[in-house]
Design a protein around this nucleic acid. Structure first.
Lengths: 129, 129, 129, 129
DNA sequence: GTGGTCTAGACCACA
DNA sequence: GTGGTCTAGACCACA
Protein backbone atom coordinates (compact mmCIF):
# COMPACT_ATOMS: atom_id res chain seq x y z
CA UNK A 1 0.00 0.00 0.00
CA UNK A 2 1.34 3.38 -1.02
CA UNK A 3 1.27 6.21 1.46
CA UNK A 4 2.12 9.72 0.44
CA UNK A 5 2.33 12.60 2.88
CA UNK A 6 2.14 16.29 2.10
CA UNK A 7 4.70 18.08 4.19
CA UNK A 8 3.10 21.45 3.57
CA UNK A 9 -0.45 20.43 4.45
CA UNK A 10 -2.44 21.93 7.31
CA UNK A 11 -3.15 18.40 8.44
CA UNK A 12 -0.41 17.13 10.76
CA UNK A 13 1.68 14.29 9.41
CA UNK A 14 0.49 11.83 12.03
CA UNK A 15 -3.10 12.60 11.11
CA UNK A 16 -2.48 12.25 7.38
CA UNK A 17 -0.90 8.90 8.14
CA UNK A 18 -3.86 7.89 10.29
CA UNK A 19 -6.29 8.94 7.58
CA UNK A 20 -4.54 7.02 4.83
CA UNK A 21 -4.43 3.89 6.92
CA UNK A 22 -8.16 4.20 7.69
CA UNK A 23 -8.87 4.58 3.98
CA UNK A 24 -6.54 1.67 3.28
CA UNK A 25 -8.55 -0.51 5.64
CA UNK A 26 -11.91 0.54 4.22
CA UNK A 27 -10.83 0.01 0.63
CA UNK A 28 -9.33 -3.36 1.39
CA UNK A 29 -5.76 -2.39 0.60
CA UNK A 30 -5.14 -3.41 4.18
CA UNK A 31 -6.91 -6.60 5.17
CA UNK A 32 -8.22 -7.49 8.61
CA UNK A 33 -5.44 -9.10 10.66
CA UNK A 34 -2.87 -7.82 8.18
CA UNK A 35 0.40 -6.77 9.75
CA UNK A 36 1.35 -3.14 9.40
CA UNK A 37 4.97 -2.12 8.94
CA UNK A 38 6.91 -1.58 12.14
CA UNK A 39 7.10 1.94 13.49
CA UNK A 40 10.75 2.12 12.54
CA UNK A 41 10.28 0.73 9.05
CA UNK A 42 7.41 3.02 8.15
CA UNK A 43 9.21 6.03 9.55
CA UNK A 44 12.21 5.24 7.42
CA UNK A 45 10.13 4.58 4.29
CA UNK A 46 8.27 7.85 4.66
CA UNK A 47 11.31 9.81 5.74
CA UNK A 48 9.71 10.94 8.99
CA UNK A 49 10.40 10.49 12.68
CA UNK A 50 9.47 7.33 14.56
CA UNK A 51 7.59 9.41 17.11
CA UNK A 52 5.30 10.66 14.39
CA UNK A 53 4.48 7.16 13.23
CA UNK A 54 4.12 6.16 16.85
CA UNK A 55 1.56 8.87 17.41
CA UNK A 56 -0.44 7.78 14.37
CA UNK A 57 -0.41 4.15 15.52
CA UNK A 58 -1.38 5.11 19.06
CA UNK A 59 -4.31 7.08 17.68
CA UNK A 60 -5.43 4.23 15.43
CA UNK A 61 -5.16 1.87 18.36
CA UNK A 62 -7.20 4.13 20.59
CA UNK A 63 -9.86 4.39 17.92
CA UNK A 64 -9.96 0.62 17.58
CA UNK A 65 -8.78 0.44 13.97
CA UNK A 66 -5.63 -1.48 14.79
CA UNK A 67 -4.33 -3.66 17.56
CA UNK A 68 -0.81 -3.44 18.87
CA UNK A 69 0.85 -6.58 20.12
CA UNK A 70 4.23 -6.22 21.75
CA UNK A 71 5.38 -9.40 20.13
CA UNK A 72 4.49 -8.83 16.52
CA UNK A 73 3.80 -5.15 16.17
CA UNK A 74 0.63 -3.60 14.79
CA UNK A 75 -2.17 -5.42 13.01
CA UNK A 76 -5.37 -4.25 11.36
CA UNK A 77 -8.18 -4.92 13.77
CA UNK A 78 -11.32 -4.31 11.96
CA UNK A 79 -13.59 -6.90 13.32
CA UNK A 80 -16.82 -5.22 12.37
CA UNK A 81 -18.43 -6.20 15.66
CA UNK A 82 -16.08 -3.94 17.60
CA UNK A 83 -16.93 -0.71 15.92
CA UNK A 84 -20.27 -1.25 14.28
CA UNK A 85 -22.36 1.86 14.16
CA UNK A 86 -21.68 3.30 17.57
CA UNK A 87 -23.98 6.17 18.38
CA UNK A 88 -20.91 8.23 19.17
CA UNK A 89 -19.56 7.72 15.68
CA UNK A 90 -22.91 8.48 14.09
CA UNK A 91 -23.20 11.74 16.01
CA UNK A 92 -19.76 12.87 14.84
CA UNK A 93 -20.57 11.79 11.32
CA UNK A 94 -23.76 13.83 11.28
CA UNK A 95 -21.84 16.90 12.37
CA UNK A 96 -19.26 16.46 9.65
CA UNK A 97 -21.98 15.90 7.08
CA UNK A 98 -23.78 19.06 8.11
CA UNK A 99 -20.75 21.16 7.26
CA UNK A 100 -19.82 19.32 4.09
CA UNK A 101 -23.35 19.40 2.78
CA UNK A 102 -23.74 23.06 3.67
CA UNK A 103 -20.69 23.81 1.54
CA UNK A 104 -21.97 21.56 -1.22
CA UNK A 105 -25.42 23.18 -1.27
CA UNK A 106 -23.89 26.63 -1.58
CA UNK A 107 -21.79 25.38 -4.48
CA UNK A 108 -24.93 24.20 -6.21
CA UNK A 109 -24.60 20.50 -5.56
CA UNK A 110 -28.05 19.08 -4.94
CA UNK A 111 -29.08 15.93 -3.11
CA UNK A 112 -28.93 13.76 -6.22
CA UNK A 113 -25.56 15.01 -7.34
CA UNK A 114 -24.21 14.52 -3.82
CA UNK A 115 -25.65 11.05 -3.63
CA UNK A 116 -23.91 10.16 -6.87
CA UNK A 117 -20.55 11.27 -5.48
CA UNK A 118 -21.15 9.18 -2.38
CA UNK A 119 -22.00 6.12 -4.42
CA UNK A 120 -18.84 6.45 -6.47
CA UNK A 121 -16.85 6.49 -3.26
CA UNK A 122 -18.76 3.58 -1.82
CA UNK A 123 -17.92 1.53 -4.88
CA UNK A 124 -14.23 1.92 -4.13
CA UNK A 125 -14.78 0.48 -0.67
CA UNK A 126 -14.73 -3.19 0.14
CA UNK A 127 -17.96 -4.88 1.03
CA UNK A 128 -17.32 -6.74 4.23
CA UNK A 129 -20.86 -7.84 4.88
CA UNK B 1 -28.64 33.57 14.34
CA UNK B 2 -27.07 31.94 17.35
CA UNK B 3 -23.40 31.10 17.25
CA UNK B 4 -21.85 28.98 19.95
CA UNK B 5 -18.14 28.32 20.13
CA UNK B 6 -16.42 25.56 22.03
CA UNK B 7 -13.34 27.05 23.61
CA UNK B 8 -11.82 23.67 24.28
CA UNK B 9 -12.41 22.21 20.85
CA UNK B 10 -9.64 20.99 18.60
CA UNK B 11 -11.07 23.20 15.87
CA UNK B 12 -9.65 26.72 16.04
CA UNK B 13 -12.13 29.40 17.02
CA UNK B 14 -11.88 31.22 13.71
CA UNK B 15 -12.65 27.99 11.88
CA UNK B 16 -15.61 27.18 14.11
CA UNK B 17 -16.92 30.64 13.41
CA UNK B 18 -16.39 30.23 9.67
CA UNK B 19 -18.12 26.85 9.74
CA UNK B 20 -21.16 28.11 11.59
CA UNK B 21 -21.57 31.01 9.21
CA UNK B 22 -21.32 28.67 6.23
CA UNK B 23 -23.97 26.44 7.77
CA UNK B 24 -26.05 29.53 8.55
CA UNK B 25 -25.95 30.51 4.90
CA UNK B 26 -26.81 27.06 3.63
CA UNK B 27 -29.72 26.64 6.02
CA UNK B 28 -31.09 30.05 5.26
CA UNK B 29 -30.53 31.49 8.72
CA UNK B 30 -28.40 34.00 6.88
CA UNK B 31 -29.95 35.25 3.66
CA UNK B 32 -28.15 36.34 0.51
CA UNK B 33 -27.21 40.00 0.78
CA UNK B 34 -27.85 39.91 4.52
CA UNK B 35 -25.55 42.10 6.52
CA UNK B 36 -23.29 40.37 9.03
CA UNK B 37 -22.45 41.99 12.37
CA UNK B 38 -19.34 44.12 12.43
CA UNK B 39 -16.13 42.43 13.47
CA UNK B 40 -16.09 44.43 16.67
CA UNK B 41 -19.72 43.64 17.48
CA UNK B 42 -19.43 39.92 16.88
CA UNK B 43 -16.19 39.70 18.83
CA UNK B 44 -17.85 41.37 21.78
CA UNK B 45 -20.97 39.18 21.58
CA UNK B 46 -18.91 36.02 21.51
CA UNK B 47 -16.37 37.20 24.04
CA UNK B 48 -13.43 36.59 21.75
CA UNK B 49 -10.68 38.65 20.18
CA UNK B 50 -11.47 40.84 17.18
CA UNK B 51 -8.48 39.29 15.42
CA UNK B 52 -10.25 35.95 15.53
CA UNK B 53 -13.43 37.27 13.95
CA UNK B 54 -11.34 39.13 11.43
CA UNK B 55 -9.60 35.95 10.42
CA UNK B 56 -12.91 34.14 9.98
CA UNK B 57 -14.34 36.94 7.84
CA UNK B 58 -11.19 37.10 5.72
CA UNK B 59 -11.41 33.38 5.13
CA UNK B 60 -15.10 33.53 4.23
CA UNK B 61 -14.38 36.38 1.84
CA UNK B 62 -11.52 34.53 0.21
CA UNK B 63 -13.76 31.51 -0.26
CA UNK B 64 -16.45 33.70 -1.81
CA UNK B 65 -19.10 33.13 0.85
CA UNK B 66 -19.26 36.79 1.84
CA UNK B 67 -18.27 40.13 0.38
CA UNK B 68 -16.73 42.91 2.39
CA UNK B 69 -17.53 46.48 1.53
CA UNK B 70 -15.74 49.17 3.44
CA UNK B 71 -18.88 51.28 3.66
CA UNK B 72 -21.43 48.66 4.57
CA UNK B 73 -19.36 45.99 6.24
CA UNK B 74 -19.71 42.28 5.49
CA UNK B 75 -22.62 40.81 3.55
CA UNK B 76 -23.57 37.30 2.61
CA UNK B 77 -22.63 36.81 -1.00
CA UNK B 78 -24.10 33.63 -2.08
CA UNK B 79 -25.17 34.27 -5.58
CA UNK B 80 -25.25 30.75 -6.83
CA UNK B 81 -23.65 31.68 -10.11
CA UNK B 82 -20.42 32.64 -8.38
CA UNK B 83 -19.67 29.41 -6.72
CA UNK B 84 -21.61 26.79 -8.60
CA UNK B 85 -19.88 23.49 -8.65
CA UNK B 86 -16.31 24.59 -9.20
CA UNK B 87 -14.05 21.69 -10.07
CA UNK B 88 -11.80 22.80 -7.24
CA UNK B 89 -14.61 22.46 -4.73
CA UNK B 90 -15.69 19.12 -6.13
CA UNK B 91 -12.18 17.74 -5.86
CA UNK B 92 -11.91 18.78 -2.21
CA UNK B 93 -15.35 17.41 -1.52
CA UNK B 94 -14.46 14.04 -2.99
CA UNK B 95 -11.38 13.85 -0.78
CA UNK B 96 -13.36 14.65 2.33
CA UNK B 97 -16.01 12.12 1.36
CA UNK B 98 -13.40 9.43 0.86
CA UNK B 99 -12.24 9.73 4.46
CA UNK B 100 -15.68 10.13 5.98
CA UNK B 101 -17.09 7.20 4.03
CA UNK B 102 -14.06 5.05 4.85
CA UNK B 103 -14.74 5.65 8.53
CA UNK B 104 -18.43 5.03 8.03
CA UNK B 105 -17.88 1.75 6.18
CA UNK B 106 -15.62 0.47 8.93
CA UNK B 107 -18.30 1.37 11.46
CA UNK B 108 -20.80 -0.69 9.52
CA UNK B 109 -22.73 2.11 7.85
CA UNK B 110 -23.65 1.00 4.36
CA UNK B 111 -24.50 3.05 1.31
CA UNK B 112 -28.20 3.17 2.07
CA UNK B 113 -27.78 4.14 5.69
CA UNK B 114 -25.30 6.82 4.68
CA UNK B 115 -27.63 8.11 2.02
CA UNK B 116 -30.41 8.40 4.57
CA UNK B 117 -28.22 10.50 6.83
CA UNK B 118 -27.34 12.75 3.90
CA UNK B 119 -30.97 13.23 2.97
CA UNK B 120 -31.87 14.20 6.52
CA UNK B 121 -29.21 16.84 6.39
CA UNK B 122 -30.28 18.05 2.97
CA UNK B 123 -33.78 18.56 4.29
CA UNK B 124 -32.47 21.05 6.80
CA UNK B 125 -30.89 23.07 4.00
CA UNK B 126 -32.66 25.73 1.99
CA UNK B 127 -33.51 25.10 -1.61
CA UNK B 128 -32.19 28.02 -3.54
CA UNK B 129 -32.96 26.73 -6.99
CA UNK C 1 0.20 21.93 44.82
CA UNK C 2 3.39 19.95 45.14
CA UNK C 3 4.21 17.35 42.55
CA UNK C 4 7.10 14.98 42.99
CA UNK C 5 8.18 12.52 40.35
CA UNK C 6 10.27 9.41 40.83
CA UNK C 7 12.71 9.16 37.96
CA UNK C 8 13.48 5.53 38.70
CA UNK C 9 9.89 4.35 38.94
CA UNK C 10 8.36 1.77 36.63
CA UNK C 11 5.54 4.20 36.05
CA UNK C 12 6.34 6.56 33.17
CA UNK C 13 6.80 10.19 34.14
CA UNK C 14 3.78 11.34 32.17
CA UNK C 15 1.64 8.80 33.97
CA UNK C 16 2.97 9.75 37.39
CA UNK C 17 2.15 13.33 36.54
CA UNK C 18 -1.33 12.36 35.38
CA UNK C 19 -1.92 10.37 38.56
CA UNK C 20 -0.84 13.16 40.87
CA UNK C 21 -3.06 15.64 39.11
CA UNK C 22 -6.02 13.27 39.36
CA UNK C 23 -5.36 12.89 43.08
CA UNK C 24 -4.95 16.65 43.36
CA UNK C 25 -8.37 17.14 41.84
CA UNK C 26 -10.04 14.54 44.04
CA UNK C 27 -8.50 15.87 47.22
CA UNK C 28 -9.39 19.44 46.38
CA UNK C 29 -5.82 20.68 46.07
CA UNK C 30 -6.88 21.55 42.55
CA UNK C 31 -10.30 23.13 42.35
CA UNK C 32 -12.79 22.85 39.50
CA UNK C 33 -12.06 25.52 36.92
CA UNK C 34 -8.64 26.11 38.45
CA UNK C 35 -5.94 26.92 35.95
CA UNK C 36 -3.09 24.46 35.72
CA UNK C 37 0.46 25.65 35.09
CA UNK C 38 1.40 26.01 31.43
CA UNK C 39 3.11 23.08 29.78
CA UNK C 40 6.35 25.02 29.67
CA UNK C 41 6.17 26.20 33.24
CA UNK C 42 5.42 22.81 34.71
CA UNK C 43 8.12 21.18 32.60
CA UNK C 44 10.63 23.69 33.91
CA UNK C 45 9.50 23.34 37.53
CA UNK C 46 9.73 19.58 37.41
CA UNK C 47 12.90 19.53 35.35
CA UNK C 48 11.37 17.43 32.60
CA UNK C 49 10.65 17.87 28.92
CA UNK C 50 7.65 19.81 27.65
CA UNK C 51 6.62 16.81 25.54
CA UNK C 52 6.26 14.75 28.68
CA UNK C 53 4.00 17.31 30.32
CA UNK C 54 2.16 17.62 27.04
CA UNK C 55 1.49 13.92 26.98
CA UNK C 56 0.16 13.99 30.54
CA UNK C 57 -2.14 16.93 29.74
CA UNK C 58 -3.35 15.28 26.53
CA UNK C 59 -4.19 12.15 28.48
CA UNK C 60 -6.01 14.08 31.20
CA UNK C 61 -7.93 15.95 28.51
CA UNK C 62 -8.88 12.76 26.75
CA UNK C 63 -10.11 11.29 30.02
CA UNK C 64 -12.16 14.40 30.70
CA UNK C 65 -10.34 15.50 33.84
CA UNK C 66 -9.14 18.75 32.35
CA UNK C 67 -10.10 21.06 29.53
CA UNK C 68 -7.56 22.72 27.26
CA UNK C 69 -8.34 26.14 25.90
CA UNK C 70 -5.93 27.56 23.37
CA UNK C 71 -6.33 30.98 24.88
CA UNK C 72 -5.73 30.32 28.54
CA UNK C 73 -4.13 26.91 28.76
CA UNK C 74 -5.39 23.98 30.81
CA UNK C 75 -8.11 24.09 33.44
CA UNK C 76 -9.53 21.50 35.79
CA UNK C 77 -12.78 20.29 34.34
CA UNK C 78 -14.42 18.21 36.87
CA UNK C 79 -18.01 18.98 36.43
CA UNK C 80 -19.35 15.87 38.10
CA UNK C 81 -22.06 15.51 35.50
CA UNK C 82 -19.52 14.79 32.78
CA UNK C 83 -17.92 11.80 34.33
CA UNK C 84 -20.40 10.53 36.87
CA UNK C 85 -20.30 6.80 37.32
CA UNK C 86 -19.92 5.71 33.74
CA UNK C 87 -20.37 1.99 33.36
CA UNK C 88 -17.04 1.92 31.57
CA UNK C 89 -15.29 3.38 34.57
CA UNK C 90 -17.05 1.04 36.95
CA UNK C 91 -16.03 -1.99 34.92
CA UNK C 92 -12.37 -0.93 34.98
CA UNK C 93 -12.63 -0.18 38.68
CA UNK C 94 -13.99 -3.64 39.42
CA UNK C 95 -11.11 -5.22 37.59
CA UNK C 96 -8.55 -3.20 39.50
CA UNK C 97 -10.30 -4.01 42.78
CA UNK C 98 -10.25 -7.70 42.02
CA UNK C 99 -6.48 -7.70 41.82
CA UNK C 100 -5.88 -5.39 44.76
CA UNK C 101 -8.26 -7.29 46.98
CA UNK C 102 -6.78 -10.61 45.92
CA UNK C 103 -3.39 -9.36 47.04
CA UNK C 104 -4.87 -7.98 50.23
CA UNK C 105 -6.67 -11.23 51.11
CA UNK C 106 -3.48 -13.21 50.69
CA UNK C 107 -1.72 -10.77 52.99
CA UNK C 108 -4.37 -11.37 55.62
CA UNK C 109 -6.32 -8.18 55.22
CA UNK C 110 -9.98 -8.96 55.67
CA UNK C 111 -13.04 -7.08 54.49
CA UNK C 112 -13.26 -4.93 57.60
CA UNK C 113 -9.62 -4.00 57.64
CA UNK C 114 -9.78 -3.17 53.94
CA UNK C 115 -12.87 -1.09 54.46
CA UNK C 116 -11.11 0.89 57.17
CA UNK C 117 -8.24 1.68 54.81
CA UNK C 118 -10.72 2.84 52.17
CA UNK C 119 -12.51 5.07 54.62
CA UNK C 120 -9.27 6.71 55.68
CA UNK C 121 -8.57 7.50 52.07
CA UNK C 122 -12.08 8.74 51.46
CA UNK C 123 -11.70 11.17 54.32
CA UNK C 124 -8.81 12.81 52.54
CA UNK C 125 -10.98 13.42 49.51
CA UNK C 126 -13.20 16.40 49.05
CA UNK C 127 -16.90 15.94 49.22
CA UNK C 128 -18.33 17.57 46.14
CA UNK C 129 -21.91 16.49 46.60
CA UNK D 1 -7.79 -22.95 36.18
CA UNK D 2 -8.29 -20.99 32.99
CA UNK D 3 -5.84 -18.25 32.14
CA UNK D 4 -6.54 -15.88 29.30
CA UNK D 5 -4.05 -13.30 28.16
CA UNK D 6 -4.76 -10.22 26.09
CA UNK D 7 -1.94 -9.91 23.62
CA UNK D 8 -2.80 -6.33 22.83
CA UNK D 9 -3.11 -5.13 26.41
CA UNK D 10 -0.97 -2.39 27.89
CA UNK D 11 -0.14 -4.76 30.70
CA UNK D 12 2.87 -6.91 29.85
CA UNK D 13 2.15 -10.59 29.39
CA UNK D 14 4.25 -11.69 32.32
CA UNK D 15 2.38 -9.28 34.57
CA UNK D 16 -1.03 -10.45 33.33
CA UNK D 17 0.04 -13.98 34.07
CA UNK D 18 1.29 -13.04 37.52
CA UNK D 19 -1.97 -11.19 38.24
CA UNK D 20 -4.18 -14.07 37.20
CA UNK D 21 -2.24 -16.49 39.34
CA UNK D 22 -2.51 -14.16 42.33
CA UNK D 23 -6.26 -13.91 41.77
CA UNK D 24 -6.40 -17.67 41.34
CA UNK D 25 -4.77 -18.14 44.72
CA UNK D 26 -7.00 -15.65 46.48
CA UNK D 27 -10.17 -17.09 45.03
CA UNK D 28 -9.15 -20.62 45.84
CA UNK D 29 -8.88 -21.80 42.27
CA UNK D 30 -5.32 -22.55 43.21
CA UNK D 31 -4.95 -24.16 46.61
CA UNK D 32 -2.07 -23.80 49.05
CA UNK D 33 0.62 -26.33 48.19
CA UNK D 34 -0.97 -26.93 44.82
CA UNK D 35 1.51 -27.63 42.06
CA UNK D 36 1.62 -25.18 39.18
CA UNK D 37 2.25 -26.36 35.61
CA UNK D 38 5.85 -26.40 34.51
CA UNK D 39 7.16 -23.30 32.76
CA UNK D 40 7.39 -25.21 29.53
CA UNK D 41 3.88 -26.64 29.83
CA UNK D 42 2.22 -23.35 30.65
CA UNK D 43 4.12 -21.53 27.89
CA UNK D 44 2.92 -24.10 25.40
CA UNK D 45 -0.69 -24.00 26.63
CA UNK D 46 -0.79 -20.22 26.41
CA UNK D 47 1.15 -20.02 23.18
CA UNK D 48 3.77 -17.70 24.62
CA UNK D 49 7.50 -17.77 25.17
CA UNK D 50 8.92 -19.77 28.08
CA UNK D 51 10.90 -16.67 29.06
CA UNK D 52 7.64 -14.89 29.74
CA UNK D 53 6.31 -17.61 32.02
CA UNK D 54 9.68 -17.76 33.69
CA UNK D 55 9.57 -14.07 34.45
CA UNK D 56 6.09 -14.35 35.93
CA UNK D 57 7.10 -17.29 38.13
CA UNK D 58 10.26 -15.50 39.28
CA UNK D 59 8.19 -12.48 40.23
CA UNK D 60 5.62 -14.59 42.11
CA UNK D 61 8.44 -16.33 43.94
CA UNK D 62 10.11 -13.08 44.87
CA UNK D 63 6.81 -11.78 46.20
CA UNK D 64 6.33 -14.93 48.23
CA UNK D 65 3.21 -16.16 46.46
CA UNK D 66 4.83 -19.37 45.26
CA UNK D 67 7.85 -21.45 46.10
CA UNK D 68 10.01 -23.10 43.51
CA UNK D 69 11.58 -26.41 44.25
CA UNK D 70 13.94 -27.82 41.68
CA UNK D 71 12.59 -31.33 42.16
CA UNK D 72 8.87 -30.66 42.24
CA UNK D 73 8.57 -27.45 40.30
CA UNK D 74 6.48 -24.49 41.42
CA UNK D 75 3.92 -24.71 44.20
CA UNK D 76 1.50 -22.25 45.67
CA UNK D 77 2.96 -21.01 48.92
CA UNK D 78 0.34 -19.10 50.61
CA UNK D 79 0.81 -19.95 54.19
CA UNK D 80 -0.87 -16.98 55.72
CA UNK D 81 1.80 -16.56 58.35
CA UNK D 82 4.40 -15.75 55.75
CA UNK D 83 2.77 -12.76 54.22
CA UNK D 84 0.32 -11.49 56.79
CA UNK D 85 -0.09 -7.77 56.62
CA UNK D 86 3.47 -6.70 56.06
CA UNK D 87 3.88 -2.97 56.49
CA UNK D 88 5.47 -2.87 53.07
CA UNK D 89 2.40 -4.37 51.49
CA UNK D 90 0.09 -2.06 53.39
CA UNK D 91 2.02 0.99 52.27
CA UNK D 92 1.80 -0.04 48.63
CA UNK D 93 -1.87 -0.87 49.04
CA UNK D 94 -2.60 2.55 50.47
CA UNK D 95 -0.91 4.21 47.54
CA UNK D 96 -2.89 2.19 45.03
CA UNK D 97 -6.09 2.91 46.91
CA UNK D 98 -5.38 6.62 46.91
CA UNK D 99 -5.31 6.71 43.12
CA UNK D 100 -8.21 4.35 42.58
CA UNK D 101 -10.38 6.16 45.09
CA UNK D 102 -9.43 9.55 43.64
CA UNK D 103 -10.65 8.37 40.26
CA UNK D 104 -13.76 6.87 41.81
CA UNK D 105 -14.63 10.06 43.72
CA UNK D 106 -14.32 12.14 40.56
CA UNK D 107 -16.62 9.70 38.81
CA UNK D 108 -19.18 10.19 41.51
CA UNK D 109 -18.70 6.95 43.42
CA UNK D 110 -19.06 7.64 47.11
CA UNK D 111 -17.75 5.74 50.09
CA UNK D 112 -20.82 3.54 50.38
CA UNK D 113 -20.96 2.65 46.71
CA UNK D 114 -17.24 1.88 46.77
CA UNK D 115 -17.64 -0.25 49.86
CA UNK D 116 -20.36 -2.24 48.16
CA UNK D 117 -18.10 -2.95 45.20
CA UNK D 118 -15.37 -4.09 47.56
CA UNK D 119 -17.70 -6.42 49.43
CA UNK D 120 -18.86 -8.01 46.19
CA UNK D 121 -15.26 -8.73 45.35
CA UNK D 122 -14.50 -10.02 48.83
CA UNK D 123 -17.34 -12.48 48.50
CA UNK D 124 -15.62 -14.06 45.52
CA UNK D 125 -12.50 -14.63 47.59
CA UNK D 126 -11.88 -17.63 49.78
CA UNK D 127 -11.92 -17.26 53.51
CA UNK D 128 -8.74 -18.78 54.78
CA UNK D 129 -9.11 -17.81 58.39
C1' DG E 1 13.67 -6.88 17.01
C1' DT E 2 9.47 -4.60 18.77
C1' DG E 3 6.99 -0.54 20.61
C1' DG E 4 7.25 2.94 24.54
C1' DT E 5 9.38 6.74 26.69
C1' DC E 6 12.16 10.68 27.14
C1' DT E 7 15.20 14.60 25.95
C1' DA E 8 16.82 19.05 23.78
C1' DG E 9 15.70 21.93 20.68
C1' DA E 10 13.02 23.95 17.08
C1' DC E 11 9.16 25.96 14.52
C1' DC E 12 4.28 26.92 13.85
C1' DA E 13 -0.71 28.16 14.39
C1' DC E 14 -3.70 30.37 17.36
C1' DA E 15 -5.21 34.20 20.08
C1' DG F 1 2.49 33.72 25.32
C1' DT F 2 -0.08 29.38 24.62
C1' DG F 3 -0.30 24.48 23.20
C1' DG F 4 0.73 21.40 19.05
C1' DT F 5 3.88 19.21 16.07
C1' DC F 6 8.11 17.44 14.54
C1' DT F 7 13.00 15.94 14.50
C1' DA F 8 17.35 13.34 15.74
C1' DG F 9 18.89 10.57 18.77
C1' DA F 10 18.90 7.74 22.80
C1' DC F 11 17.65 4.16 26.14
C1' DC F 12 14.52 0.73 28.05
C1' DA F 13 11.12 -3.07 28.83
C1' DC F 14 9.17 -6.79 26.63
C1' DA F 15 9.35 -11.03 24.12
Amino acid sequence: MVISLKLDSDTPLYEQLRNQIVIGIATGKLLPQEKLPTVRQLAEDLGINTMTVNKAYALLKQEGYIVIDRRHGAKVNWQPADLTDSTEHTAKLEQKLELIIAEAVIHGIDNEHFHKLCEQTYEKMNDYH
